[in-house]
Simulated assay, not measured.
Amino acid sequence: MKFTAVAITTLLPLLILASPAPVPNAAEPTLPVTLAPRAPDGLLEKRSVAATVVADGVRHRICPRVSSSCPANGQYAKGTKIRLDCYTRDNTTPVDGDAGWARITSNGDWIALAYGHYVSWSASLPYC
């Protein structure tokens, strides 16, 4: 009797571990993996950088270039507080020798960085 109890307590866990995993029945439908719905734009917290316009009449444009294909949508007065998403130097027009332009969080327009002559920012900007 003692041998049987020892054999069961020793061998039973080994038999359970060695048994193959059950194969799902092909006739049973499997539920598809679903993802949470995407939150509407504006509901997710966007990380942006605080900035201040340091020159009067700084224009913001629809793209990061000074040309007829990128008209200015408006301008900011000196001291205006804005938020910036990111910056780029690709396919831009240099302003005051700097090709850097930053995307404005609130409207998606672009503003020339111009080595900080037009706008100053509080932290490092990620590249777009």
Rank of each mutant, 00 (worst) to 15 (best):
M1E: 15
F3M: 15
T4K: 14
A5N: 10
V6Y: 03
V6L: 02
T9G: 09
T9H: 01
T9W: 11
T10G: 06
L12C: 14
P13I: 12
P13W: 11
I16F: 13
L17F: 06
L17K: 04
A18E: 00
S19T: 07
P20R: 12
P20T: 12
V23I: 15
N25H: 09
A27V: 05
A27T: 11
P29S: 06
T30R: 15
L31F: 05
P32F: 07
T34F: 06
L35W: 09
A39M: 11
P40E: 11
P40H: 08
P40C: 09
D41C: 09
G42W: 06
A50G: 09
A50N: 07
A51H: 08
T52Q: 08
V54I: 06
V54W: 01
D56N: 10
G57E: 08
R59S: 09
R59V: 04
R59L: 06
H60Y: 13
H60M: 13
R61Y: 06
R61Q: 01
R65F: 00
V66Q: 11
S68H: 03
C70L: 01
G74E: 00
G74D: 00
Y76T: 04
Y76Q: 08
A77F: 14
G79S: 05
I82A: 09
I82C: 11
I82S: 10
I82P: 12
L84M: 15
L84R: 13
L84P: 15
D85F: 05
C86V: 00
C86S: 02
Y87F: 15
T88S: 08
R89L: 05
D90G: 05
D90F: 11
D90R: 11
D90T: 07
N91I: 07
T92E: 01
P94T: 04
P94D: 01
V95D: 01
D98S: 02
W101N: 01
W101M: 03
R103S: 11
I104P: 06
T105P: 00
S106M: 02
N107P: 05
I111E: 05
I111L: 15
A112M: 03
L113T: 13
L113K: 09
L113Y: 06
A114Y: 00
A114G: 04
Y115T: 03
Y115C: 00
G116R: 06
H117N: 10
Y118T: 02
V119L: 02
S120W: 02
S120V: 10
S120Q: 12
S120T: 06
W121M: 04
W121T: 01
W121K: 10
S122Q: 15
S122I: 05
S124Y: 02
C128T: 10
